[in-house]
Amino acid sequence: MRFSVLASGSTGNSIYIENDEHAFLVDAGLSTRKLEKLLGEVGRDMKALDGIFVTHEHSDHIRGLGVTARKYGVPIYANEKTWKAMDGLVGNVPAEQRFVFDMETVKTFGSFDVQSFAVSHDAADPMFYIFHENGRKLVLITDTGYVSDRMKGWIREADAYVFESNHDVSMLQMGRYPWNIKRRILSDVGHVSNEDAAVAMSEVVSEKETRIYLSHLSKDNNMKDLARLSVSQTLETCGIRVGEYVHLFDTDAEQPTELVPV
């Protein structure tokens, strides 16, 4: 399988995953026009999409969902509570395009197994996805206040991770966000910090080549260089030598990452 993080951050999220037979998006948090452009930049077309998996109903994950669904007739997958929460947010999605993807289940699309798992986030019933194909494993996990042992169980020993590294704690504390927003971000149902993400990573990676994409970076309370420094130094204190078998990659709010095989 191959994947590209089309866009990542609080301005909009979408990840593209494909193999030789199927093509999917996880979330459509940007306008349809932007999604078309981003997908075009990795040489792919919206018309080829076989489905969109929705993680939760926050606008940075579903902004372009309704229009994309109607324009391209793509099947949309989300769990029951998320469907209910999206009501009125995405406009009309035709009944034949609405599919329910239950929490902690697996759906099979040809050689793809797509697995859903719960995260801790202030949405109706937030869940993320793991893609399996031919023994290879791609884990997507952002929008979670922390990484629980249960989550660690699901995401262990993947070949690639799209991992949230949302904020730097001290930058957030010093920054000019109002207190209630700071509290939300730092809470168990907000977002995971650079250090906490790194500690979780250190507990789930195995000693094989692993690509980790640092994602959903806060625009005001983080920076790519800071996230990379912070994650790599924390990983190193946890005994993982970055650059040997664990490799860190940036994602961007406006530019897709290279479409690479897992």
Binding site: S170, M171, M174, L226, L229, S230, Q233, T234, T237
Partner: peptide, 10 residues
């Protein structure tokens, strides 16, 4: 000084 990481100061 903004942030103190394990090895690095930002």
């Amino acid at each position: 000084p903004l942030v103190q990481l394990t090895k690095t100061q930002v």
